[in-house]
Structures are given as structure tokens and as C-alpha cells.
Design a protein around this nucleic acid. Structure first.
Length: 447
DNA sequence: CTTTGAAACA
């Protein structure tokens, strides 16, 4: 772990020096607050410039929702297309701004993008640094994250190093911030940026549109791709994105009819992808199976489950998770347990706390408390740590059922669970200090 | 560089 790469270390240090200047809004030629290395004397490399832009991005615009997630992030609440004018209006009226950027300080974000642009120009002018595709992509991504679309488009227009991959990256980021219309605009301007769309960029754009529920435009793009002889024909990803979005979004509206129509639409897409000779993968099946389970159509889900196995596609812990959640929810817990055992037996995945949690919750609710405790122990033996809520629920249920004998304070299992939960909590506080802990009665603060 | 799942509380 602790391998020290001197160049990387130097770049990090340099990035910190520049960051101090950014925060204090000082020119980059200003004397550094601490001795060496100084930005105005540094031999700038590709990696160093990238590192600086990354640190500006990290400092000024990390959305609290994305902190603590390793890669990418998914929204718990559905995204809606954001409206800049409305947001500005609300901001002026001192009311809450909605959307993923809501928790960010707008001034800080603004300063971040301006400073990044300034730095980008500064290394170029002061050291004749030749920007590469990598540094340009880093700046473009920073501007996209800051939702600074005007700056972004201006930059892409005049930068000679933009590639399709860079624009795809930008489209993805805009989509993650609920700016699907802006993503679409960026896509349409690709010619202006001297690059051609490919299937990847189409897929990313379709995903961004689906995330805000704009299926009309998403379907229109698919139609375009399906035209015979088109340069970017749809692939498995294209269909999987649409199918999963229909399944996910279908449940959102309270209306049963709309849900049915969306799930039906997902099935239709699935058939048409098979017809085109495209091979569905685990993810495609998982999306469909989860859609069926959530709409209580297990028979269909099981059919798909068999279907995937005959095609030689190996189910994974996500596939089994959908079934386990379904069976736990409808109180057919033993079938859920059977699914868990099948996954282990066939070597289709190692159950983690995600697989055990629905079963444990359901068992507690059904009053089968001792069994619940058994699964909790099994989970811990497997090396996982239960969620705090789950642990509290099992302990409460044991007490209520008069099984206090399993609650001995000095028990090794209890100690391991508590240590695990506290370790995870401390880990989280490191990356996300602004977090309130729920605090369940079972967990007293360690000394 | 793109796709699946992820609880309870207020």
C-alpha cells in the first residue's frame, strides 16, 4: 500500500500549493505560503497539470451526495431536468435550490471554474506548456461538474484536443447533474467541436435522458441508430440502458396502468434486441428480472431466470438479490432462503449483507427471531458487517421474544458487530464529516 | 467512457 512514487508525491504537493492560491484568490505567480515547490518555478508535466485541475475540482465542487461512493454515483431520488433560470430566481429569493448541486456553495463553484480556466491559460502562457488530450478532458469535466455550460462550450469550441471520448465524459457528467437537455445540446454540437458521435456517446446520452424520464427523446435517438446502415448501430448497452430505465421509471408513477405499459415496453425492447441478433448479458436480465419482481410477477421473473441459464449467462448476486427481496417482501421467507442457498451452492456469488438483510428483517417481522439471529451470525462469519438498523432490530426482537440469553454483552459476535459498525462509521466521518448518525439504542459510544 | 441492485427514520 504505502508505495511512495516521488513524482506523484511532488504533484500532490504542487497541487496543494496551487489550491491555496485558488482559495485565497491570489495570482498563480504569487510567492508560495510555504517553501518549495513553488507553482511559478515548477517544471509542469501532464500529470502535474491534471493533478491540479483534479484538486480544484475536488475542493470546489464535490457534491455531498457523491462523497463516499467509490466510482460514479447513482441518485436515490429520481432526477429531474434542472432549469437554470428558475434556479437563479429561487437563489435570488433566498429559497432552497433544488437539484444535485443544491448543497454546493454557488460562489465556490463559480470561483472554482474561473480559477481552473485561469490556471489552464496560465501554465500555457507562462511556461509554454503544451496541453494534451488528458489535460483538456480534465478541464472539460471540471466545467461540466460545475454546470458551467457557457464556459464549457466556449472551451470545447476552441480547444484543438477534444475527442469523442472527452465529449462523452462531459455528456455523462451533465446527465448526472440532471442537465439532460444540456447534454443533448452538447451532443448536437459535436461537429462544432470537430468530433463525431459514436455508439458510446449515443448510449451515454440516452442514459442521461432516461434519468430525467425523457423517454420520447431517448426513443427518438434509438430510432435514429436503428436506421439501416447508420454509422452508430445500437448495441447491448443501448438496449440494456433503455430496458432498465423503463423498469426503474415504470414503478415511479403511482398509476398501475402506466407501470404496466412501461414494463411491457421493456419486454418489447428485449424481444426486438433478440430479433436483431444482439446477445443480452447479465445486466439486461437483472434489470428485467428486478422489474418483474417489483411488480410482483415472479413467474415471469423465474422464466427469465431459466432463460438466462440456458443461454449460458451466469446469474450473479444482483440477480439473486432481486428474488430474495421479493420473497422477503411477500413473506415467503423460506423461498428467499432457498435462493440464498442456491447462490452459494452453485457458486454464483458470495452473499454479503445485501443478501442477508431482507431475510433477517422479514424473519424479525414474522417473529422467527432465533432464526434471524442465526442468519446474523452467518453474515458476520462471512466477514460482512450488518447495518446498524439491522443489528438493532434483531436485538430488540430477541429481547421482546424473551430470548435475552443471546444478548450477552461479552459475546464475541456482539463485539465483532459493534466494532465493525463503529469502524465503518469512523471511516465515513473521514470522507463525509457532515453526517448525522441515527443512533440505535443498541450502539452506545465506545470510550 | 456507457448498463443491473442497495434499508429505516424524520
Amino acid at each position: 500500500m504505502g508505495i511512495t512514487n516521488p513524482a506523484r508525491h511532488f504533484n500532490k504537493h504542487l497541487a496543494n500549493q496551487v489550491l491555496v492560491l485558488v482559495i485565497k484568490d491570489l495570482p498563480f505567480d504569487a510567492p508560495p505560503p510555504s517553501p518549495s515547490p513553488s507553482p511559478s518555478a515548477a517544471p509542469w508535466t501532464n500529470d502535474a497539470v491534471t493533478e491540479v485541475l483534479r484538486s480544484i475540482s475536488r475542493y470546489t465542487l464535490q457534491s455531498p451526495r457523491s462523497i463516499g461512493r467509490q466510482s460514479g454515483f447513482r441518485h436515490r431520488t429520481p432526477l429531474r431536468q434542472r432549469n437554470f433560470n428558475l434556479e437563479h430566481h429561487k437563489f435570488c429569493n433566498n429559497t432552497l435550490v433544488l437539484g444535485p448541486a443544491a448543497h454546493q456553495d454557488p460562489d465556490k463553484v463559480h470561483l472554482g471554474s474561473l480559477k481552473a480556466l485561469e490556471f489552464f491559460r496560465w501554465v500555457e502562457a507562462r511556461f509554454a506548456f503544451a496541453h494534451s488530450e488528458a489535460t483538456c478532458r480534465e478541464l472539460a469535466c471540471l466545467l461540466a461538474r460545475a454546470s458551467a455550460t457557457k464556459h464549457l462550450w466556449n472551451f470545447l469550441k476552441q480547444c484543438p484536443h477534444v475527442t469523442t471520448a472527452t465529449v462523452t465524459c462531459v455528456i455523462k457528467l451533465l446527465g448526472e447533474h440532471g442537465l439532460a437537455d444540456e447534454a443533448l445540446l452538447t451532443f448536437h454540437r459535436m461537429k462544432q467541436f470537430r468530433c463525431k458521435p459514436d455508439t458510446h456517446s449515443y448510449n451515454t446520452l440516452i442514459y442521461a435522458l432516461c434519468c430525467v424520464g425523457n423517454f420520447t427523446k431517448a426513443r427518438y435517438l434509438l430510432q435514429q441508430m436503428e436506421l439501416p446502415g447508420f454509422r452508430c448501430p445500437p448495441d447491448t448497452f443501448t438496449y440494456t440502458i433503455l430496458i432498465s430505465s423503463y423498469c426503474r421509471y415504470g414503478r415511479l408513477t403511482g398509476c398501475r396502468k402506466a407501470t404496466r405499459r412501461r414494463i411491457y415496453e421493456a419486454g418489447r425492447l428485449f424481444r426486438s434486441m433478440l430479433f436483431k441478433g444482439l446477445v443480452p448479458d447479465v445486466v439486461t436480465y437483472n434489470a428485467l428480472i428486478d422489474g418483474c419482481c417489483k411488480t410482483l410477477r415472479v413467474e415471469r421473473a423465474l422464466e427469465l431466470f431459466d432463460d438466462m441459464k440456458t443461454r449460458g449467462i451466469v446469474p450473479n448476486h444482483v440477480t439473486y438479490g432481486s428474488f430474495i427481496r421479493y420473497y422477503s417482501a411477500v413473506n415467503e421467507i423460506d423461498k428467499g432462503v432457498e435462493m440464498l442457498r442456491q447462490m452459494q451452492r452453485l457458486g454464483h456469488g458470495i452473499p454479503g449483507s445485501n443478501s442477508y438483510t431482507p431475510i433477517i428483517h422479514a424473519l424479525c417481522e414474522a417473529g422467527r427471531v432465533v432464526e434471524a439471529w442465526g442468519f446474523l451470525v452467518e453474515l458476520v462469519d462471512g466477514g460482512s458487517v450488518p447495518r446498524e438498523y439491522t443489528y438493532g432490530l434483531v436485538c430488540d426482537s430477541l429481547r421482546a421474544a424473551g430470548e435475552g440469553g443471546l444478548l450477552l454483552k461479552e459475546d464475541v459476535v456482539h463485539k465483532r458487530i459493534k466494532d465493525g459498525i463503529w469502524n465503518r462509521y469512523r471511516q465515513m466521518m473521514k470522507v463525509k464529516p457532515v453526517m448525522t448518525r441515527k443512533g440505535y439504542p443498541e450502539m452506545e459510544e465506545p470510550v
